[in-house]
Each structure stands twice: as C-alpha cells, then as structure tokens.
Design a protein around this nucleic acid. Structure first.
Lengths: 150, 150
DNA sequence: TTGATAATGGGAACCGTTTTCAATAAATAA
DNA sequence: TTATTTATTGAAAACGGTTCCCATTATCAA
C-alpha cells in the first residue's frame, strides 16, 4: 500500500504516517474553505473522536514545514489553513471584504501576476540580493453584497 | 496651537487629542521599524512612565480606524504597527526572510506595481464586483545574509 | 513479531490582547 | 478662568488561541 504522494515524503523524512495525520490531510483535501485549527479538529473529530486538538496543531505545523499546507492570518484572531497548491488546489490569492470579512479565493490574471513577479524577482535580487521563494498578494475592499448595501 | 494634521481629524470625529495619543504618534513618526504594541509601550514609557499598555492597544486600534496606522502580522505571534504612508512614510511592501525572519521594506518598481494593480482592479471589479480599497504584497525568501550561509 | 522511538492526548501553562470599572483629564460653555 | 460634560485612562483580571509537559500508545524497519 503506497498511498498518496505525501506518505513517501513523510517516511523519507523520518516521519510516520499516522491516523490523525491522514485524517487531517483528508479534511484539508476535501474542502476549499479556510479552516481554523479548531474547525479542522471538529471535522476530524466526527470520524476519530479521540484525536486531540494538540495533535491538530502539531500536525499542521509539520505539514507547513513539509510545504503541504499554507497558513494564513486574515485578522480574526485565529490562523487559517489551506492545502498548498497541487493536484487538488490551484495557485490562488485572496480578496478580503473589509466589511463582512468574507474571504474570496481568486486565481485570475495569472499572466499579469507572473509577469509582475518576474520583474520583482529580478529587481529584488539585484538590489537586496534577496531570493524570492514565495509571495503573498491580497486585496482588501468591498464585496458585491457590501458594496450594494448602505 | 493647531498642531499636526491628525489633531483636526481626531477632533472632527469627536475624539480628543491626549498626551498618550500624541506620544504614541510621536514614537511611530520617528521610526521606520515595525514595532509591536509592547515596544511602542516601552518607548512611550521612557517619556511618560504612567501611560499604560492598555492605552497603547486602544490608541493603536483607533489610529488604524482613522487610517493613520497599518497593522501587520509577520508570523512571530505579535502584531506590528507602522505609520500609514503620508508625509513621513512612503508606500512600501515587505520582504520577509524565512530563515532569520528579518523584515525589509522596499518601495521599488512602483510602476510595475501600479500597472499590475490597475489590471487586477479592473478584472476583479468585472468578475466579482469587488471594489479594491487596499492591497498587500509580500515576498518570502532568503535575505543576503542567509543566502550566503550554509 | 518485536523493539526502538516517534507520536499522541489531556490538561496545564503561556502570552498577546481585550475587558472592566472607578478615577482622571480634554473640550466646550459660561 | 472656571465649571461641566463625558471621552479617556490605568491597573488588574479575564480571555482565548496556541504551546508545552509527560506518561501512554502506535508506527514501522528489521
């Protein structure tokens, strides 16, 4: 039983593939929401009631290190987690409504984004000797519902 | 005694211009660092030892609402504050070293950024009926020191 | 199957931030 | 200037998400 790609990535790094870890990856794989640790815990809890919140935090930390998960802070006092881009998830960024706090994923204008990044990368490497590994683009504003509401 | 521009902005909104508020604005005006609430508190404390940490938090919250201050989360467990762009501060974004966690301000390629934003704005308005008010661009990677260090 | 040890879970600890509330001080009117 | 109104303040307690501790359990290479 080979299992998903990340099994090998885990074992290769000396980490074990455990029930809680599978369950957490499963929850993240099956949603496009921006879940908090507690929400993931509750979801996992439905299937494995004995998995603890501590384990969820530890596992998320590990998944982030392994590059399988991204952690975000949308300003509501708790961290949010998403599966990193891969088979299940495509590269995207966030629109955040400053009024209702709704977070919308978008993956449009990739071309423009790539062009922009290419230039940024070049200039930052030249000027600061900085090597870009990742980037974050976020737009704050008013969503359709909040725009059309007094 | 008119005082700085924000005095009027405050009084006009029914807020009072107080000693702690002046002191906090003063600290923020005189640095280009990304100070935490506690660091601001300590700085204010040097001049006004009786100003409390609670007031610092409350004032920062107010300054953010008034659009005079921006709040950031660089992932070290505490919020960071900067004066919004204006006379003292120019529009900029952050480079974050994923190794030493150093944060570098940069305000380069404004042209490219503006061009990119213009297009993004247009497309997001069309597709999501979303009205952009603000944006965040951030690059994660390795700074010069960490690049050249095994 | 088994042994070495990575991983787990529950509860306590942690710590940045927020709340509470009586005392204080800014702004306005007199 | 002084009085009056009420926004603001400071100290301490409360809050809440996240991390730590440690005895127990489960993974997986041999």
């Amino acid at each position: 039983m080979m299992g998903p790609r990340w099994y090998g990535q885990f074992r290769g790094s000396g980490y074990r593939v455990t029930v809680p870890r599978k369950a957490i990856m499963d929850v993240l794989s099956k949603t496009s929401k921006h879940l908090s640790a507690e929400e993931i815990y509750l979801e996992v809890h439905k299937v494995y009631p004995n998995v603890g919140l501590t384990t969820v935090y530890r596992t998320l930390e590990l998944l982030i290190q392994m590059g399988l998960v991204h952690k975000f802070d949308f300003g509501d006092g708790r961290a949010r987690y998403e599966l990193a881009e891969g088979e299940k998830r495509e590269h995207h960024h966030h629109l955040i409504c400053i009024r209702c706090k709704r977070v919308i994923d978008y993956s449009d204008f990739r071309e423009e984004e790539l062009e922009f990044l290419r230039r940024a990368e070049k200039k930052l490497a030249e000027k600061y000797d900085f090597e870009i590994k990742n980037h974050l683009i976020r737009f704050y504003g008013l969503c359709d519902k909040c725009r059309n509401k007094k």
